[in-house]
């Protein structure tokens, strides 16, 4: 550091605080504006987060921090370290002001760190060239992307499908697909181990299309469902009528429909196919779909493994 240590730390802290202040204003404003513009399309979510919130805003955060840091001629290692601190501050601010959950912040932190660091290192190089036209053009371009993204349509509906072979005939498997006793299997998926709710039990009001079904999760959350297709030994499809609100992933995803399809393999075994349709309210989809697919897949597999154990016990 070239200036006095006290002055240097003031600049470093200013870089972090101003960057985070701008970020919280931009993310908060875009979240409420996009949620308002999406209207009913925002579903039960706690708000829509556009891709700019996790890409353009962190890039700007990095660029703002570098504006304060570059006269100090910090080493790259310091840029990495202070960018990590800035990411932690952003996570804490999201927890306090945007009411985000800890698991959501674990999911989003690598993305924010990578883009904040990219913004800081790129800006450091740009500021060295002392080209104010270029600096203001890049800042203007970033804000333009943020505006265009805010006023664009946001739709991200996905299907996750999983298959499992059960060593039991179809008529033995079917009752456990419709409703099942509490799952006692040990949690193996790391997000379930750190506190994300996992499926525990399913109950039904009746055994026909139109009857209600409930899927109960480990923290007591209940998904209210309505069976829309009830074909014994063949297909069970249900729409999700209501799902719990929470600050974690459930606040950013609507599970729309679930489905079990059973196929008789002709050798005393049954193929169980589990399908789920969901709508995601956080972008970029290429990043968050990786997580939501993984979570949905592990919900499927936990239920399907349980169905397999229950069915094979009776053979």
């Amino acid at each position: 550091m070239s200036s006095s240590p006290r002055n240097a730390y003031t600049r470093i802290l200013l870089g972090i605080l101003v960057a985070n202040l701008v970020a919280i204003i931009l993310v908060g404003a875009s979240k409420y504006l996009v949620t308002y513009l999406e209207g009913n399309h925002a579903g039960n979510s706690s708000g829509v987060f556009i891709f700019s919130s996790f890409i353009v805003v962190p890039l700007l955060m990095g660029a703002i921090s570098a504006w304060y840091w570059h006269p100090l001629q910090l080493k790259t290692l310091a840029y990495i370290g202070w960018s990590a601190v800035s990411t932690l501050v952003a996570s804490a601010a999201s927890f306090i002001f945007l009411k985000e959950g800890a698991i959501c912040l674990i999911i989003v932190s690598p993305l924010i760190l990578c883009f904040t660091l990219t913004g800081a290192l790129l800006a450091r190089t740009v500021y060295r060239r002392k080209n104010n036209t270029l600096n203001s053009s890049l800042a203007g371009l970033a804000l333009l992307v943020l505006l265009a993204d805010t006023f664009s349509s946001h739709e991200n509906v996905r299907l996750v499908s999983d298959t499992l072979i059960v060593n039991a005939p179809i008529e033995t498997v079917w009752p456990h697909v419709v409703e099942y006793k509490p799952i006692t299997l040990e949690e193996t998926y790391w997000l379930f181990q750190v506190g994300m709710p996992s499926p525990v039990q399913s109950t039904v009001d009746g055994y026909e299309a139109g009857a209600g079904r409930k899927c109960i999760f480990s923290n007591g959350y209940v998904f209210d469902e309505k069976m829309i297709v009830y074909k014994p030994n063949e297909e069970l499809t249900f729409d999700i009528l209501s799902q719990p609100h929470d600050p974690e992933i459930m606040g950013h995803i609507d599970i729309l429909r679930g489905q079990f399809i059973l196929k008789d393999n002709g050798n005393g075994t049954t193929t169980v196919i589990g399908n789920s349709w969901y709508k995601l309210y956080v972008f970029p989809g290429w990043y968050f779909n990786l997580w939501s697919e993984s979570i949905t897949r592990n919900v499927h597999l936990r239920v399907m493994e349980h169905i397999k154990i229950l069915s094979e016990k009776n053979v």
């Binding site: 080493k75 790259t76 290692l77 990495i80 760190l113 290192l121 790129l122």
Partner: peptide, 21 residues
């Protein structure tokens, strides 16, 4: 490419911590 390069720098911290210096 710049995001990828930032990611390389982060990974290098764990594989060769002196590299950025």
């Amino acid at each position: 490419p710049h995001v990828f390069d930032a990611w390389l720098k982060l990974v290098s911290l764990f594989t060769n911590k002196n590299l950025s210096d």
